[in-house]
């Protein structure tokens, strides 16, 4: 014990103090506060009262909670694979480019750099029933005769949110996959072509296995992000129509904003538990190589 906590090492830990201050004060204490608060009745203009698990028992009987949990899980299940597919196609294309590389890479990166609340506003206009770009383009190409009610129907709103979210996040996946692709030596492909393999075989036998660690990283980062989705939905649909696109974050937010901190905290603790479980899984699945000795 004495050796571990020598004066020298304590001095080294002092370098972590500013870092620890910010994380503890503005992330850890609020999270612990939310956990404690979830056992209280804590509504504006009412006396705060300890009610044990009552928030949780009413939560699990709340059909609105199950609807938002179901939406969040569906959103993860649909949007993450879709974004991964899109990111993979983008990465394979970008990897082939020789000319104008800097500009084209930047063009793909721009959707990621714009605040989602701002781009979601543009998507809101794109989905407009009467004069949005989506309906205009679809009827111009001749795919649809009648305009599509994008944001007014459950399924339309779901698709709209998934597409707007994929537009924003596919670049992130692309960049991560691209880093992996560039680590694969060209010689491997050249050799496989000499051996008579075509593109699909090369992709399945060389690219995919070598990209697997990178894919796991992208997949789990995106899973957590999709699970806690808020900005895009808040702007695009507000959780509607009829709660059809209410994610867990939106559901909890609605309680906070109405002054019910106890119930909102219980919602956030459930989401936190799911996200935490997944992040533990993440650390376990991808064996990190940090290069730190």
């Amino acid at each position: 014990m004495k050796r571990i906590f020598s004066k020298d090492i304590l001095k080294s830990y002092a370098f972590l103090l500013p870092f620890a201050f910010f994380i503890i004060a503005f992330i850890l204490i609020p999270v612990i506060g939310a956990i404690i608060n979830s056992f209280y009745q804590d509504v504006t203009f009412k006396a705060r009262e300890f009610i044990q698990f009552e928030n949780y028992t009413s939560l699990f009987q709340d059909s609105g909670f199950w609807q938002s949990l179901r939406f969040s899980l569906w959103f993860v299940l649909v949007s993450v694979p879709f974004e991964l597919l899109l990111g993979m196609i983008f990465a394979l294309l970008l990897n082939q480019i020789r000319k104008f590389r800097g500009l084209i890479w930047a063009a793909v990166l721009i959707p990621w750099a714009i605040p989602s609340a701002i781009s979601a506003r543009t998507w809101e206009l794109i989905y407009n029933y009467n004069y949005g770009l989506a309906n205009y383009a679809l009827s111009a190409i001749g795919i649809t005769q009648e305009p599509v009610n994008w944001l007014g129907t459950s399924i339309g709103a779901f698709i709209s949110v998934v597409i707007a979210d994929a537009w924003k996040t596919a670049p992130f996946i692309t960049i991560i996959l691209l880093a992996g692709l560039q680590g694969i030596p060209d010689d491997l492909y050249r050799q496989s072509r000499i051996d008579g393999a075509n593109f699909v075989q090369g992709f399945r036998k060389i690219t995919l296995p070598l990209l697997k660690p990178v894919i796991v990283v992208a997949l789990l980062f995106r899973t957590i992000d999709a699970l806690r989705v808020f900005d895009v939905i808040y702007v695009l649909t507000g959780g509607g129509p009829g709660g059809a696109t209410t994610s867990l974050s939106i559901f909890g937010y609605n309680y906070y904003i109405n002054g019910d901190f106890g119930y909102g905290s219980a919602v956030s603790v459930v989401l936190f538990a799911i996200a935490f479980g997944l992040s533990v899984l993440y650390v376990k699945m991808s064996r990190f190589k940090t290069g730190i000795r």
Binding site: P30, V31, N37, Y253, Y256
Partner: peptide
């Protein structure tokens, strides 16, 4: 910490 949902931080 970077994977904590913001909603579980912002209330408190």
């Amino acid at each position: 910490v970077s994977m904590f949902p913001q909603i579980s931080i912002v209330g408190y």
